Structures are given as structure tokens and as C-alpha cells.
Simulated assay, not measured.
Amino acid sequence: MQEDYIKWYSPNLSADFEMLTFGHGGYPIVLFPTSKGRYYENKDFKLIESAGHLIDEGKVKIYCPDGIDALSWYNKSIHPADRVKNHIWYDKMLLEEVAGRARCETGFDKIITAGCSFGGYHAANFAFRHPWLVSHLFSMSGAFDLRGQMDGFYNGDFYYNNPIDFLPNDHSTELWDMKVVLGTTDRDICRHDNERLSEILSRKGMNHWLDIRHNADHDWVIWRQMFPEYLGQL
């Protein structure tokens, strides 16, 4: 499997940024880490290995960007409004620097977003904010309502980065072209978030799959089963 480490100075974040990529071609997939996770987390927990055959066959090329949750949503040392602002810079960096690179390298017009747990939030938030750019969303045990990270604070910036809030009122036509999979389990701490998002998508008439696995937890074991199965639909 081809693996490449990339480091560059991000003008959007005003800092160096790191990323791992896996594969030599195919559908470009931006795969996010979990809460406060790093760019190598999905490799360390063998999520990349679970899709190794698809990577080797050239069906997918996976981009694993670093996360900045410790500077944004989980940064209790700054005001909640600044936590959101830091995330907005991250979103801008993903849009201009990561997605742009993925499209250029693979030749695809659109990307796929994916992630587990809090990575599922990042995958969904980016996809729903930029539906013209995302063809598929694969979330595994994602969380989609971040009010708990805001200490009771709420403003417009937060609204547009909290999918449970902004998606019901978003009528971008590209949303209905997106293929969405919401993976969860019967014992998942994020099951309610997935069922709630599924209800929103259903009310909007958006075709999607709410995949509830049984006898499973919020854990890498089930995510390693889900990920290659979802990619197999491409």
C-alpha cells in the first residue's frame, strides 16, 4: 500500500499542518480522526488496513488530515465564540487546501467524507456545508449536535456548524444528489444523534441509509467492519 506523509504551512491556520495519504488513485476520501485525534489515528487503529484491498486496487485514495479539536471545540480555555471561529478556519483549510489537493491528485470533481465518532461530525458538517463538493458521506457513530461543547453559548457561527440545526433549513439542491450512510449500533452512545439526523433527512426527502448494527458498541471493532462495507458501495 502506498503511504505518503505530507507537511505544509497552512495559510488558513497560520501553522504547519500534517496529513497522511494512502493509495495511488481512485475516489478521494477525506477520513477524519476522532475527538482530539491526530492524522495517524485511523492508521494506528487499523481502519486504513480494513480497507487495504480497495486502496491497493486503486479504487480509493484516502486522505487523513490532522485534527484541531483541542484548539476549537474542546478548548475550554477560550470563549465558546472563539472555539467556533477556530473551527471555521479549519473548515476553510479543508476546503481550500485538503479538498483541493485531493481533487487535483485524483482527477475527481467531488470528494467523499468519512469519519468515526467525532470524526463523523466533521465528515457530516463539511459535507452538508459544501454539498456541491461531496458525493458521499460515510459516518460511523457520528455526533451531530455540539451544543454540549458550547457552555450554553449560541450564535450564528455555531448554527452554521451544527448540522442538527442548519440542515433542516438548507435547501441547496446538491444535497439531494449526495449518498449518505449513517452507521451506528444498538449500544452506541451516539445512536440518538444518528436517529435524529436520519429523521431530518427523511423529512427533507433525502435518500439515505441508517445502518444500526446489533450487539455492538461505540468502538473501533465495529467501525472496521463498517468502513470497507460502505466503500464497497462505490
Rank of each mutant, 00 (worst) to 15 (best):
N42S: 05
E199P: 06
Y230V: 05
E96C: 10
I200Q: 05
G25H: 08
S202H: 13
D170T: 07
K43H: 14
W89D: 14
D217K: 13
A15Q: 14
G142E: 02
I212C: 08
A123D: 00
K179F: 10
F22P: 03
L197T: 05
D165H: 08
I164L: 02
R213G: 07
P228F: 06
I200K: 02
A15E: 15
D82G: 04
L94F: 08
G152D: 08
G156A: 13
I111A: 01
V98Q: 07
D193P: 06
W8D: 08
G37Q: 08
G120S: 01
S139E: 05
F108C: 14
R191V: 01
T184H: 01
S72K: 06
G26K: 04
N12P: 12
A143D: 06
D186Q: 15
Q2W: 10
Y90V: 11
S77V: 08
D4L: 13
L182C: 09
V84R: 04
G232S: 12
S141C: 15
I6C: 11
L54A: 04
D16H: 14
D44W: 09
M178E: 04
L231I: 10
D44P: 01
Q2R: 13
M226N: 01
K36C: 15
F118H: 07
L137P: 03
R101L: 15
F32H: 01
R129C: 01
K61P: 06
D145S: 08
T21A: 11
D66E: 14
I78W: 05
P33A: 12
L197H: 04
M226Y: 08
R129K: 10
G67P: 04
S135R: 08
I189Q: 13
V134C: 03
M140K: 01
F126L: 09
G100V: 09
C104M: 14
D4C: 12
K59W: 09
V30E: 01
L47H: 02
